[in-house]
Write a protein that binds this DNA or RNA. Structure first.
Length: 312
DNA sequence: CGCATTTGACCTGCGC
DNA sequence: GCGCAGGTCAAATGCG
């Protein structure tokens, strides 16, 4: 198979390049979106990904010269690929995707696994023993139920020096596994907020070690933590980009801070909140350099950092 | 001391 | 049925 990697390292982004263009939206705002046009404060990047397949086709054609087929970059159903999602992102055999959620298909193990695990833990706590038989039975029955509630997944490839990109939320690492055919391990994180079962996987592409693949699963049901220290850098970033009008900004957040599902939180709950002590806050990361470069510099720096692959 | 990380064991699904 | 790979658990350990 011949895979073609489409990167944006050398792409010249026009200064007028905006989300409007991306989404092929009318410059005159729909009334429902407020006075200033498209209201990103209520329309997250994730929403975009999930709701406008056609828009991305035209975006890609218009701005990147990609064929509609390459819109798979944005629209590929992660569900069908949840199996491949794990391995192929790493092996580089599937397009990088900023994926839409899916509602069917099996094989999205994490969601059900966690569900089953939690259930199993509960069962064990109550029943004491019989863990194997019990867990299997419970798992079987619960599995079907959980299937229906599969959480959406969003994957991003981001060029970054740090593995775990700061996104404003607190994460606790709960596992790490070696990835087949890759020298780089995959790390598993869970949102530390109670009752928020958002998870994310972070791994480094073995094809390009400078690329970090982040996959979010689920959506946060809470605001970005505000009462913690240590994330002043991220807080400053959010504050500086309060007006998400351009694709530049959005993709910046996406690439460097919110990376997908978390955009929900960033957009819905606002920016500029005080920082918090994320375990992954890294004020010395290259992202700060992006910030210092100004908006257009951000565009040039961040956007090219996201790779898209086209599968033939 | 509390919380986060590490890491080996375990579970599950899938392909052969 | 077996082996493999992905995903999760949880005790041990580290760190501020």
């Amino acid at each position: 198979m011949s895979n073609e990697t489409k990167d944006f390292y050398n792409y010249q982004f026009p200064s007028s390049f905006s989300l409007y263009d991306m989404m092929n939206l009318p410059t005159s705002a729909p009334s429902s979106y407020g006075n200033n046009g498209f209201d990103l404060s209520s329309y997250s990047f994730t929403d975009c990904l999930q709701s406008s397949p056609g828009a991305y086709d035209s975006l890609l054609q218009k701005n990147f010269g990609l064929s509609p087929s390459s819109s798979e970059v944005f629209n590929s159903s992660i569900d069908q690929e949840s199996k491949r999602d794990v391995s192929n992102d790493v092996t580089g055999e599937t397009p990088t995707r900023v994926s839409a959620p899916s509602s069917s298909s099996e094989a999205d193990h994490p969601g059900e696994d966690s569900g089953k695990s939690q259930i199993r833990k509960r069962e064990l706590a109550e029943d004491g023993g019989e863990e194997n038989q019990n867990s299997k039975k419970v798992g079987k029955t619960k599995k079907n139920e959980e299937k229906k509630q599969r959480e959406p997944r969003v994957s991003f490839m981001t060029k970054s020096e740090v593995d775990h990109l700061e996104d404003g939320y607190r994460w606790r690492k709960y596992g790490q596994k070696a990835v087949k055919n890759s020298p780089y391990p995959r790390s598993y994180y869970r949102c530390t907020t109670q009752k928020c079962n958002v998870k994310k996987r972070v791994e480094r592409s073995f094809q390009d070690p400078t690329v970090v693949i982040t996959t979010y699963e689920g959506q946060h049901n809470h605001p970005i933590p505000t009462n913690l220290r240590g994330n002043s850098a991220a807080a400053a970033m959010y504050s500086d980009f309060m007006t998400p009008r351009s694709f530049t900004h959005d993709m910046f957040r996406t690439a460097a801070y919110t990376s997908g599902g978390s955009v929900e939180g960033a957009l819905d709950y606002g920016y500029g909140q005080s920082g918090y002590g994320s375990v992954n806050a890294n004020p010395n990361s290259s992202h700060q350099n992006y910030h210092q470069g100004g908006e257009y510099e951000l565009l040039k720096e961040i956007l090219p950092s996201i790779f898209f692959k086209q599968e033939h």
